[in-house]
């Protein structure tokens, strides 16, 4: 399911037109992004938790060339599936 299909489904569910749905969805994305930017975690009940994790810098070795590289630290968004959803999709 791509973004277009997703928005269509969303607008039909909420009885909104596609344009406003798109706008609200963008706003929601901005909202989530701004929270994650501040390293807050967002937990959606029955779905999962979005959280930001800090990955430390590390030395990576290219196995074929044996070249060593220093990978800088970074912040990544991590999604942890809730147990409810995990159980639901377990057998699929």
């Amino acid at each position: 399911m791509n973004n277009k299909e997703f928005l269509a489904e969303l607008s039909s569910r909420l009885n909104m037109n596609a344009k406003t749905t798109g706008q609200i969805m963008t706003a929601l994305n901005e909202e989530i992004t701004s929270h994650l930017e501040e390293e807050d975690s967002i937990s959606i009940q029955g779905f999962g938790i979005f959280e930001v994790k800090k990955k430390l810098e590390r030395v990576l070795v290219n196995p074929s060339t044996k070249q060593r590289m220093l990978v800088p630290p970074k912040m990544v968004v991590n999604f942890k599936v809730s147990n409810v959803l995990k159980d639901k999709i377990q057998d699929l």
Binding site: L36, V52, E57, L60, Q67, M69, L70, K74, M75, V77
Partner: peptide
């Protein structure tokens, strides 16, 4: 956006 604080870093060869 989340990685903004570390965006300037790049992987460097040692």
């Amino acid at each position: 956006q989340v990685n903004k604080p570390f965006a300037d870093f790049e992987t460097t060869i040692i």
